[in-house]
Design a protein around this nucleic acid. Structure first.
Lengths: 329, 329
DNA sequence: TTGAAAGCGCTAACAA
DNA sequence: TTGTTAGCGCTTTCAA
């Protein structure tokens, strides 16, 4: 069928071990042999069979990346960082969609185990982590990203959500806003919880009482942002300022406001977590908390590579990246 | 190290062949044995080693997906369809970023070949396809998506770009707009070229002379859309209507208009190719040409699976999916 | 219905 | 510096 190392060996009259050594840049091989072998490799159009190599070496140079949703620009910006960083070390990444549900997540993990990936990066879809434990049993290094889970300890790369929303809310307070509404994500997720926590702390530190009527939680999706903003605006005494916990809810909330002819420069003001490529284009939030998404992916990849290489210092290690405040104009 | 099929065999006192048969649902195995084996599998917490299996079967159940950019919502919406469809058949997908450049693309192809993927889906980064030919040599089924290339024939899934922009421009003409500007993508890409072609045909069919001063080409990116819209608007006689060739250029163009206080409901009107989740939220285009992105991915996956299964009918097969006209309100 | 054994293509220990 | 050879974990042919 296809050309094997043996064919190459025969072709240039050396042993297959020698060919293998040349292919793997083994230093103790003569220049003459190397050239001869490479010539045959070219002539026969030989390609390494990575599967056979993996079976022998117990390394696949492949990493799994599981996220709740593939067509989500936030997750994919992280994935981009991961891919970029891993490819430098010759790794490729299998991307899996957990569909925001635990069962799928479980299945994908099983699949990746069978594929013998060298490591896994997961953006968990829920706050449960029991089903991650098999990764420990299988000895597959794992890095959690964006969120932590219960019942499972591991390396993780997160952002400083608390101080992210704290600093945003603080900024707003200093601008003179006192009554700031809050649209949160699913409070089961650590990221959502932490962003709320930052909001609370800022209010507290500035002695602003919490008005629970203008604090609502949803699920990080467009529809949810829309519904909650509607809910808020239809109250007797709607807030004039709202802090929204992520990009998609921000979009949904904005949709509601535009549809209902609110003036987004005076009538209702909005700030949000996340700053995407398109956030600035539709200048409807005066303030955004930027997460370094690619950076998150890069850090996760680096941490994982480290573990794959057997460096087990400081396990479990949690990296918290700082957010950045983006103000409009 | 880890549990192998032999361990299981020993544990329940059968041969490894029998264990293998059970794991592969071979029918000619007694119920009694099956149960016994599965019990051992559970007890030993055995997991199939996919690498060894792949070496033997010459199938990896893995497909490569190469696209110009990972953090691009259009490409990733296609990837989502691909992943979804492939996972039904037990495949997983390695996602690669070609970084919109031919060299990276070439490298990724080489990598995927070495990984022995069963097939590859590519959204080409340029109009060149010479470097795809090795896929034929390696006997790896390939499906092109979104764009065709020169010097390489293969199955492909595209949308009907010509009629997509034709029908949009026609709609506008029927609405009474005569002087319609055009912002195009890189004309080397078939998708960009076809969208321009549709524009031209519509003008021609309605006897509207082409005004080249309001036709500009860029590269499908935000910045490009911004720059071109600026260029158009700074002309002596700027168009009152502009048709834009994709989502990102549309976003960039809108950015320019908003920054410069154009009224997007009366002053300058805009229509565009692509209709994304967020397109409707910022209601600044009165008309959009929706591509069925997930569908594209699904079709590409189906076509590929077909080829992987050895069905070589109608090669090369080109599937053109229809677009849909979305009007605002 | 089950088992024995060969071998997929590669790497690496050992020998020369 | 190079060759011989065992074996990674699985599937599958052939035999029983």
């Amino acid at each position: 069928m296809s050309v094997t190392i043996k064919d190459v060996a025969k072709h240039c009259k050396v042993s297959s071990a020698t060919v293998s050594r040349v292919l793997n840049n083994d230093p103790r091989i003569s220049e003459k042999t190397r050239i001869k072998v490479m010539k045959s490799v070219k002539e026969l159009n030989y390609r390494i069979n990575g599967v056979a190599r993996s079976l022998k070496t117990n390394r696949t140079n492949t990493v799994g990346f599981i996220c709740p949703e593939i067509s989500n620009i936030f997750f994919m910006s992280i994935a981009k960082g991961v891919e970029d960083e891993l490819k430098k070390s010759g790794y490729s990444v299998i991307i899996c969609n957990s569909n925001e549900n635990k069962e799928d997540e479980k299945e994908r993990i099983k699949l990746l185990c069978e594929k013998c990936v060298d490591g896994i990066i997961i953006i968990p879809s829920t706050n449960e982590g029991k089903h991650f434990k098999c990764l420990n049993d299988a000895n597959i290094p794992t890095v959690l990203v964006d969120r932590l889970v219960e019942d499972f300890q591991s390396d993780a790369v997160l952002v400083d959500n608390i101080n992210g929303s704290y600093s945003a809310v603080e900024y707003l307070i200093n601008k003179g806003f006192k009554r700031i509404g809050f649209i949160g994500g699913n409070i089961m997720l650590t990221s959502a919880r932490e962003r709320y926590e930052g909001y609370l702390r800022a209010l507290k530190d500035y002695c602003i009482p919490l008005d629970e009527s203008i604090v609502k939680f949803g699920d990080f999706h467009v529809e949810s942002g829309y519904a909650i903003m509607k809910d808020l605006m239809q109250q007797d005494n709607p807030p004039h300022f709202v802090f929204i916990s992520n990009y998609y809810m921000h979009a949904g909330a904005t949709k509601y406001l535009i549809e209902n002819k609110y003036n987004l420069k005076s009538n209702v003001l909005v700030a949000s977590f996340d700053d995407m490529e398109l956030s600035s284009i539709f200048g409807f939030s005066i303030l955004r908390v930027r997460q370094p998404m690619t950076e998150i992916g890069i850090k996760a990849a680096q941490l994982l590579l480290n573990r794959i290489d057997g460096n087990n210092a400081n396990y479990p290690q949690i990296i918290r990246l700082k957010t950045e405040l983006i103000t409009e104009r």
